[in-house]
């Protein structure tokens, strides 16, 4: 199986209007043994149309919690979030229509074929049958997954599942696409193909929110990066801005430096 290969590196581009706005988002919860835990606090960022925005952070930094709030699965304990102008708490259903969500574990049903899966989500999004099927054909061609049409989820490799998952997330042509650690568990080829798809989506004017703990992915792919650690944004901006602010050229070094500083601040 071959993914279409395109050039990943992007020159700085003009971005569109704000698509995702998080203002002072916070989420805490009760843990049986550890008491009240804060997953994220004071999270503020904006991602625009035609922009890939990276949430970069180690495991447990709060990336998934932030994305779950944006996709209305969780309600924040404080702050607000808007997607394409719709409020994540009061207009949850409209927000979900604006978003395509691709999770770490691909979330493909074992006992459903790729075609059935994509069709199901298209129907849930209320697409009329003819439009849905035309779009499915386009997507299957674009992702080169016609061979998966009748393959059950259980029989797919991780790469195939991720393709099906992307098709599922794009079926309603959402303006915002959220990738939650989507390259986890993918082999090099499949991961690269996924990143290619991300950059293509960005170029098409979509707002891509991309959470990862792999610095290279953020560095190569994303227009702007927010470094997240222990639920807080330590720094955010374009790569040149971050380099300038912290007088450190290498993103990995910059990342360690920020985390070190945060851990040593009482």
């Amino acid at each position: 199986m071959q993914w279409p290969a395109t050039e990943l590196a992007q020159p700085p581009r003009a971005v569109g209007r704000p698509m995702v706005e998080a203002i002072g988002l916070a989420k805490s919860y009760d843990d049986l043994a550890r008491g009240k835990l804060t997953a994220i606090e004071e999270l503020t960022f904006t991602a625009h149309a035609g922009e890939a925005f990276a949430l970069l952070g180690p495991n447990g930094a709060g990336k998934t919690t932030a994305l779950r709030i944006l996709t209305t699965m969780l309600t924040p304990t404080a702050g607000e979030a808007r997607v394409n102008g719709f409020d994540c708490i009061t207009q949850a259903e409209l927000v979900r229509r604006q978003i395509g969500f691709i999770s770490t574990n691909t979330a493909v049903y074992d006992r459903m074929t790729a075609w059935e899966l994509v069709e199901y989500f298209g129907q849930l999004h209320g697409l009329p049958d003819d439009e849905l099927h035309a779009r499915m054909e386009t997507l299957f061609t674009r992702l080169e997954m016609h061979n998966l049409r009748n393959t059950l989820g259980a029989k797919m490799s991780t790469g195939m599942r991720q393709k099906a998952s992307i098709a599922r997330a794009l079926i309603h042509d959402p303006p915002v696409i959220v990738f939650d650690e989507a390259t986890n568990g993918l082999d090099v080829l499949a991961a690269r193909a996924l990143l290619t798809e991300v950059s293509r989506l960005r170029d098409e004017g979509k707002c891509v929110i991309f959470s990862t703990h792999i610095m290279r992915e953020a560095e190569r792919l994303c227009d702007r990066i927010a470094i997240l650690h222990r639920g807080k944004i330590l720094a955010q901006g374009t790569l040149p801005e971050l380099r300038e602010q912290h007088a450190e050229h290498d993103l990995e070094e910059l990342f360690f430096q920020l985390i070190h500083e945060a851990d040593n601040t009482p």
Binding site: R68, T72, M73, R96, I99, S103, A107, Y109, G126, S165
Partner: peptide
């Protein structure tokens, strides 16, 4: 367990 619930919750279905 299979992680499919998340995607269903992120769909327009209430």
């Amino acid at each position: 367990e299979r992680g499919t619930l998340e995607t269903l919750l992120a769909s327009p279905a209430e």
